[in-house]
Simulated scan of single mutants.
Amino acid sequence: MTFEPEQLGQSAQDLAARLKQLRKQAGLSGDRLAARCNISQSKVSRIENGRVRPSLVDIEQILRALDASPDEVTEVAALARVANTEWRNLRDLRRKGLATRQAELKSLEASSTHMRYFLLSMVTGLLATPEYVRASLANSPVDTTKAVAGKLERQAVLYDRSKKFTFLLTEQAVRWPVVPALALAEQMDRLSSLTYLPNVRLGIIPVGTPTRTTTPLNTFTIYDSSLATIETMTGSLVLRDSRDIQSYLDYFACYEEVALFDEEARGKLAEWSTACRS
């Protein structure tokens, strides 16, 4: 199946309509299908009306109950994959306002318990000093005043002990000169101080560290095991398919294995901070 990026996330209604069509084709009522799947009739109705995004387990149960053919299973699986993937281009984000994006991220953080961040090239806003935040948005063609305030406001979530954060930063992310040397040293000092928070696990991956998996290509964030976002130069992908999310969880675990934590991480940050100040 081929599609344009803008089509991602827009096939939920197609998926709902196809599932409804298959049920009618099988001669089953919503009640009978629900009984076969051991789910409520109201959930079947919400799925078929596109008000609920079915999980892969839901879809597999429904297709099995409908005795769907291999071709039908393949078709619905492809629809489900596209329906659970969303593309957000940078132009649309800027048009809606960067502050709106900060509000969306704040909502995601509020509804998640364990957040994992793999940071390939820059420090994320949750960990950034005010100067770093402002510099990271300096080239934006739109007003960033509210976005800067939103990024800094979101940092309060780090002190919520009911949540767990794991950050993995490459040496490039830590040392990339987003700000002048002295400001970058202060940014490194902030990273070091955050390693003492009991609910924050912050790891550093120095250049040259071998990994047993593929070379990382993108910054990505995983919210619990329900959603992942992958950053690109022109926008971001939002993944909800459990198979895609599990792949990123596996990659994250591999990178976590080789990262430096606690005293080792603070030692590296201190070394790099000293180099900036000299």
Rank of each mutant, 00 (worst) to 15 (best):
A80F: 00
S136D: 03
K106A: 15
L197R: 15
Y196T: 15
L108F: 14
Q187D: 07
M122R: 15
P198D: 09
W176V: 11
R88Q: 12
R175K: 14
P206E: 04
S112W: 02
S107G: 13
L184W: 04
L169N: 07
I204G: 01
S111K: 10
S140F: 03
T74R: 14
N84S: 11
S112F: 05
T215D: 11
I204T: 03
T170E: 01
T166P: 04
Q187V: 08
A110Q: 15
A156W: 07
R95F: 06
P216I: 08
A173G: 08
V148H: 03
A83E: 00
A138I: 07
T213Q: 11
L182D: 15
S136N: 08
P216W: 05
E86K: 12
L90V: 07
P130N: 05
V207T: 15
R81C: 01
V133D: 02
A147Y: 02
L197W: 14
R201Q: 14
S107T: 15
L79E: 00
F167E: 02
V76K: 02
P70D: 05
V200D: 03
R81T: 03
M115E: 03
A183L: 14
L158Y: 09
A185K: 01
L127D: 00
L168E: 01
V157N: 06
R94K: 14
V174I: 15
S112Q: 04
V76Q: 00
L202W: 08
V148C: 11
N139H: 10
L126P: 06
Y159E: 14
F118N: 06
E75G: 03
D189H: 12
D160Q: 11
T145N: 05
E186P: 03
V207R: 14
T129G: 02
R201S: 14
A77P: 00
T145P: 00
L90M: 13
L137D: 01
Q102A: 04
E109Y: 12
L152W: 08
P177Y: 09
T213A: 12
S162K: 12
R190D: 02
N84E: 10
S193C: 13
T166L: 10
G208M: 09
L158T: 06
T213K: 12
A77T: 10
A138C: 07
V76Y: 02
T74A: 15
L182H: 14
P130W: 06
I205P: 01
L120C: 09
D92I: 09
N89E: 04
W87C: 03
M115P: 04
Q187A: 10
L93M: 15
T166Q: 14
L152F: 08
G125N: 04
L194P: 06
L105E: 02
Q155W: 11
L194I: 08
P177H: 09
L191E: 01
P206F: 08
M188E: 00
D143K: 05
T215E: 13
T166A: 10
H114V: 15
L168W: 05
R88F: 10
S193I: 03
V207P: 04
G150P: 06
R81A: 06
N199C: 10
L184Y: 01
D92T: 13
T213H: 13
K163D: 06
A103D: 11
L182W: 09
A156Q: 13
V148K: 02
D92C: 06
V148P: 00
V178E: 00
L197C: 13
W87K: 01
T74K: 14
L152V: 06
L108V: 05
K164M: 12
I204Q: 02
D71K: 13
